[in-house]
C-alpha cells in the first residue's frame, strides 16, 4: 500500500494548500443547499397534521442534532489518530471541532426547547433525547475546558485525545441509561422527531438541510483548521512568506 498519501495528510502545509482549493466549493455549496432547503421547508411544504406549522423547526433541529452527535464521533476518530500515529493535523482537527460541535449541540437544545413549547406546552421536558443531548454538551464543555487549562500544546493534545476516547466509550452507556431512566419515569408520549413515516415532500428538504449543514460544518472546520495551522507554524518560512 502506498503510504505517501497518509504522510502528506500529516503535513500542515500540504493541507493548507489543498484546502484553499476546496474552500470556495464548500462555501458555495453549503450556502446554496442550506438556503434552498430552508426556504423550501419554510414556505413550500404543507403543515404537519398533528403539530401544524411548528414542525418546520425540524429543518434545523434534526441537522443540528445529527451534527452534534457525529462531530463527537469524528473527534474520537481524530483522537485515535493523534494517539496512534501522532499526526499533528489530527490534533488540530480535534481542537477546532470541539467548539463547532458544542455550538450545534446548543442549537439542537435551543430549537428542541422552542419546539417543545407548542408541542408539549412547556420549554423543557426531561425527554431521553433532550437529556442525552444535554449530557453530550457537558462532554464537549469538558474537552474545551481541558484544552484551555493545559498550556503545553503536546500535553493538551494527548490529554484531550484521551478524554475524547473515554467520552466516546461512555456515550452508548449514557444513552442506554438515559433511555432506560426515561421509560421508567414515563415522560412525554409525543416525541419530537420520531414519526412513523415522513411524507416525501417533507423528507426532501430535510435531507437537503442535513447535507447543507454537514457541508457548512466542513467549511467552518477547514476555515478554523487553516488558522490553527498558520498559528502553530508561524515560525516557518512558508507562513512568513504567505503573510508578507
Amino acid at each position: 500500500m502506498n503510504w505517501t498519501f497518509f504522510h502528506k495528510l500529516g503535513s500542515p502545509k500540504w493541507f493548507y494548500d489543498i484546502s484553499g482549493k476546496w474552500l470556495p466549493w464548500l462555501q458555495v455549496s453549503s450556502l446554496v443547499l442550506i438556503s434552498v432547503a430552508l426556504v423550501w421547508g419554510l414556505a413550500f411544504t404543507p403543515p404537519d397534521y398533528l403539530q401544524g406549522n411548528s414542525y418546520r423547526i425540524i429543518f434545523i433541529h434534526v441537522p443540528a442534532s445529527f451534527l452534534a452527535q457525529s462531530v463527537y464521533m469524528m473527534m474520537a476518530t481524530a483522537a485515535a489518530v493523534t494517539l496512534i500515529w501522532k499526526i499533528k493535523l489530527a490534533d488540530m482537527a480535534l481542537k477546532v471541532m470541539a467548539p463547532i460541535g458544542a455550538s450545534f449541540c446548543i442549537l439542537s437544545l435551543a430549537t428542541g426547547a422552542i419546539w417543545g413549547q407548542p408541542t408539549w406546552g412547556t420549554w423543557w421536558v426531561w425527554d431521553a433525547r433532550l437529556t442525552s443531548m444535554l449530557i453530550l454538551l457537558f462532554l464537549y464543555i469538558g474537552i474545551i475546558a481541558l484544552r484551555g487549562a493545559i498550556h503545553t500544546i503536546e500535553a493538551a493534545a494527548k490529554a484531550c485525545a484521551i478524554l475524547s476516547l473515554v467520552g466516546v466509550v461512555n456515550i452508548p452507556i449514557i444513552k442506554f441509561s438515559v433511555d432506560w431512566w426515561n421509560t421508567l419515569h414515563q415522560g412525554a408520549t409525543l416525541t419530537l422527531t420520531e414519526k412513523p413515516s415522513m411524507a416525501p415532500e417533507m423528507l426532501w428538504p430535510l435531507l437537503l438541510a442535513i447535507l447543507g449543514f454537514y457541508l457548512f460544518f466542513t467549511m467552518v472546520m477547514v476555515l478554523r483548521l487553516r488558522i490553527e495551522i498558520i498559528s502553530r507554524e508561524r515560525k516557518t518560512r512558508w507562513v512568513k512568506e504567505l503573510v508578507s
Binding site: L42, G52, N53, I57, I60, A64, S103, L107, I114, R224
Partner: peptide
C-alpha cells in the same frame, strides 16, 4: 405561521446566530 410564527421564527433566529458565530470566529481569528 397560523399562530406558530413566534416559535418557528425564534428557532430560525437562534440558528442564524449559531451560523453567524461559526463564521465570525474564524474570520476574526
Amino acid at each position: 405561521m397560523a399562530g406558530h410564527g413566534i416559535y418557528v421564527w425564534s428557532a430560525y433566529a437562534v440558528a442564524s446566530v449559531v451560523i453567524a458565530y461559526n463564521l465570525a470566529v474564524p474570520l476574526m481569528a
